[in-house]
Design a binder for these strands. Structure first.
Lengths: 341, 341
DNA sequence: TTGTATGCGTTATCAT
DNA sequence: ATGATAACGCATACAA
């Protein structure tokens, strides 16, 4: 059943039915009621393509999800989209997901911008310098970046967590506890968030007059095996540091696994501070959480990014919006002064 | 730039340009080349909505993702969509994600079926009895179920793993090792896959003449804290079984955490067999994997489901297709005969 | 308050 | 091999 048929059925013109359905004020209450109930009764839903073609908007937001080399979607992603997706659904928007190798990402943006399939996009995982931003600006497609790049922060919209400050604080905290040899297990440092975390960590070391030891800095895919392999190799080489900063709870689980295998206990034989995105499937909570952590909900980040983008689209105001959150430093049981003290 | 403008620019009719772009044979090679290069040069992409309206297809597949009570997206989901999404992208399809509370799921299907936004849907997480299947059949929307329900398997398309057999085999394996008190940490048993796993487990126990002990059976959200809490409470009550079957590697990590806290070692103080969906962010591999496991890639399941659905759509053949995989039983270091033997 | 006519940007039908 | 014209199903400017 389409609009025309519904109108015929009601002895009305398509125009009136359309107006009634879309809540225009000039239609009489009695007519509106007739229309609404007939629509519900016949399970009428306007053709999305026809409506979009007519109004020039598609009520959909695009997310281009780059696959890593291992054909993997970053697991943090599922929590981000649960937040964003919830916002979209409540606002009557759909989420369009495009899963492509990194190399094809730009082609997808070009298509999205030209074929009108989406009204805007969320950019995931910005690099230190990221060509996507300039591309999207030149395409005129509204977008919000989850994270930032290094240059020209003020020319586009983003929402980010203060990664620099978070890691500076955490490092400082470890130093205050008396730690000297502090390692870092980071994400890929071509990613902006990871570079900022490293810089915050280095700054705190420098402030305390501690020499940076590159052998204690690791970067890679933030998954369980990363932490395991790093820790395992350090144990084997007998070069275990006094403390570790870890960029995600996933590699942290790997570190703990390697420690347990060697009879070591977190918070006793080594201190750990973990960046906790509050992944819903790996809670680090309880009265005394397992990990001392930097805490910031990635799901709320998704929610917030989505709201920002919808606001840009619906207000027709493309002024850049920025949002910077601070991570909480929450004390758990994985930190303590070094044993030798 | 739209089709008309591109045509004018080329001194051709829109019809010819459209034909050239869409690979129709009747257009001359010379014309086609002119059209193609002009299109590339101007970064022309046909309006998706106009094309969809004209041809009556949208080249998009819908995934309705129900949020659990905790506003959580099942983490297994991200691997499933990385497989499905890759297939879509390569076939020129997009993925439409709708994140809604369980109660609104049917409304979304009704909308999808009527507004033409998607050409088909993948159904996630079927329950033991699931009204979505009948609904989709009545709506005439092509669909593939990831999993099955109990009734009428032959009337719709699905791809599933033989969960019954997998858990029967694993249980039998533990029994053969000499275990008697074997527990089960399962997903919600309102879900079909979880019910089948339980039944396979019970069947093996029955076969061996072992009395089922309901106090050793747990079901819930398959996340890390589930395993931790179950194991913790059993340790506190001094009722630790000889072995556990665990429905996902996430709760398995929680079980291991609780064991470690009490100085217990998997594969020594208790045997574990884990259903391993091969989540890309939690690999259980290596020469000797940490967990003895039932192994089946959920990413490949996503890939396979997507291929099945696209085939149904493009062949215009809605004959139900079924695909049943067997999980591998892979030996790791978390199983051994009971200590008392 | 309701209706008529037109346009949105394609693809498909029927000519030539 | 190419073109004119009519759909596709809606929204909207304009008319009544």
């Amino acid at each position: 059943m389409n609009l025309k048929q519904l109108a015929q059925h009601l002895n009305l013109s398509p125009t009136t039915v359309s107006r009634a359905l879309n809540g225009y004020p000039e239609v009489s209450e009695r007519t509106r009621e007739r229309v609404m109930s007939a629509a519900a009764q016949h399970n009428y839903h306007p053709s999305h393509h026809a409506a979009s073609l007519a109004i020039g908007k598609s009520r959909a937001i695009g997310h281009v999800v780059p696959l890593s080399e291992h054909m993997m979607i970053n697991p943090h992603f599922s929590d981000f989209i649960s937040g964003a997706g919830d916002v979209y659904a409540k606002a009557g928007y759909d989420m369009l997901l495009s899963v492509v190798p990194h190399t094809e990402e730009e082609a997808v943006y070009r298509r999205f911008a030209k074929d009108g399939r989406v009204d805007g996009v969320i950019v995931h995982g910005p690099l230190v310098e990221d060509s996507r931003i300039e591309l999207l600006q030149s395409l005129g497609l509204p977008f919000v970046v989850h994270g930032r790049t290094l240059d020209d922060e003020s020319t586009y919209s983003w929402m980010d967590v203060n990664n620099f400050r978070a890691f500076e604080r955490a490092t400082q905290f470890l130093i205050d506890l008396g730690h000297q040899h502090i390692g870092l297990i980071n994400g890929f440092e071509s990613m902006n968030f990871a570079a900022r975390r490293r810089d915050g960590y280095l700054k705190a070391l420098r402030n305390a007059g501690i020499q940076d030891n590159p052998e204690l800095r690791f970067s890679g895919e933030m998954i369980e095996p990363q932490g395991y392999q790093v820790m395992k190799s350090l144990i084997d080489a007998d070069k275990v540091p006094m403390a570790f900063l870890i960029s995600s709870i996933l590699p942290a689980l790997g570190v703990v696994r390697a420690m347990h295998e060697s009879g070591m206990v977190p918070g006793k034989d080594m201190s750990l501070i973990v960046y906790d995105d509050q992944l819903s499937f790996l809670q680090n909570s309880g009265d005394i959480p397992m990990f001392t952590s930097l805490r910031s909900s990635i799901q709320n980040a998704g929610r917030s990014s989505a709201e920002m983008l919808l606001d840009m689209i619906n207000s027709n105001d493309t002024q850049p919006r920025n949002l910077l959150w601070e991570a909480e430093l929450v004390l758990g049981s994985s930190t303590a002064p070094p044993r030798s003290l």
